[in-house]
């Protein structure tokens, strides 16, 4: 293993980490408000395909990103309508959303398979910072979405911890009836969180087709939406911990295609399982700790809310 290939690994770790972080942040927002959305994979696929199509049609990568985010939010709102509006089972609706999103993406992208990209988000130049040894090529030569992911993480963290909106949103995920009696709209908070989560998943998908592999092929998301779902649990529903977890899981994604070239005799299949194994471990720790302290999971996660008089 030489210096160049190690830098390549770390670069890929950061960029895959950002990809996972965006999607996981979206899921975290929805779950903090009490809505489990297992449709991340589908929303990412929709984000990926709409970004690519918009890139080809309008030749503007930023417009493509915005369209991808809106598409993700729109698809997420279908989940919001069923689960928050109608009180449907969240797991069933979320799984359906994944299947719907993947199918819809394949259908929409039919005419775009194999086409050259119309627009790409190219790496940002940071001047002298980019020339620094090690740090420059790894951190200061990434696509703009990587920095957007970091900013989103900080923003989500601040909103949740120290704004009225964040307090109300967290309350909606802990106890809908308390939130309602405090005068906040549980319905509004949850719908907004689900839609915002969809927008972030859409951005994550757009990152795939606008920079990581700038072309459209069915199945480009390759199960990364599921890693994002696991990541939220792994990070114990905290934006910062989810961020570190994203780097760790991003590392396994980056390492997988490089194992052979590094001459390591380790099955890439086991490596792909690693995020899920780690998540199970964290779940185990959480349940053991639950005897002493409340679980970090939002208490009302997965529960529909209907206001009722006696």
């Amino acid at each position: 293993m030489n210096e160049a290939s190690l830098i390549g690994l770390l670069f890929a770790t950061v960029s895959f980490g950002a990809l996972l972080y965006l999607a996981a942040l979206g899921e975290l927002l929805a779950e903090k408000a009490g809505v489990l959305n297992l449709g991340v994979e589908g929303m990412m696929a929709i984000g990926a395909v709409t970004a690519f199509i918009a890139g080809v049609e309008f030749q503007n990568p930023w417009l493509a990103l915005i369209i991808a985010m809106l598409s993700g939010a729109l698809l997420a709102s279908v989940h919001g309508f069923f689960t928050v509006g109608l009180g449907a089972e969240q797991v069933v609706s979320g799984l359906s959303l994944t299947i719907l999103g993947l199918g819809l993406a394949a259908y929409l992208g039919k005419g775009y398979v194999g086409l050259p990209p119309g627009a790409e988000l190219v790496p940002v130049e940071w001047g002298r910072l980019s020339d620094l040894p090690w740090v420059g090529p790894i951190l200061f030569n990434q696509a703009p979405i990587v920095y957007l992911a970091l900013l989103s993480g900080i923003a989500v963290s601040l909103i949740l911890s120290s704004t009225r909106l964040g307090l109300a949103l967290r309350a909606a995920g802990e106890s809908a009836s308390s939130t309602d009696s405090a005068g906040h709209s549980v319905l509004g908070l949850r719908l907004a969180a689900v839609a915002a989560g969809g927008a972030l998943a859409g951005a994550s998908g757009a990152y795939l087709t606008l920079s990581i592999t700038p072309q459209w092929a069915e199945g480009v998301t390759a199960g990364r939406g599921w890693i994002a779902v696991a990541l939220v649990i792994f990070g114990a529903w905290r934006p910062s911990r989810v961020g570190w977890g994203a780097l760790l899981f991003g590392g396994t994604l980056a390492l997988k295609p490089r194992l052979q070239t590094f001459g390591v005799d380790f099955s890439p299949i086991i490596l792909s399982m690693l995020p899920y194994i780690l998540t199970l471990l964290i779940l185990l720790i959480i349940s053991v700790q639950a005897r002493k302290r409340p679980s970090p999971a939002p208490a009302a996660l997965g529960l529909a809310y209907r206001r009722e008089e006696r």
């Binding site: 911890s161 120290s162 009225r164 909106l165 307090l167 109300a168 308390s178 906040h184």
Partner: peptide
Amino acid sequence: VLGSAPSIINN
């Protein structure tokens, strides 16, 4: 303060 918090909360 839930329900009557300022928009930006200084904890």
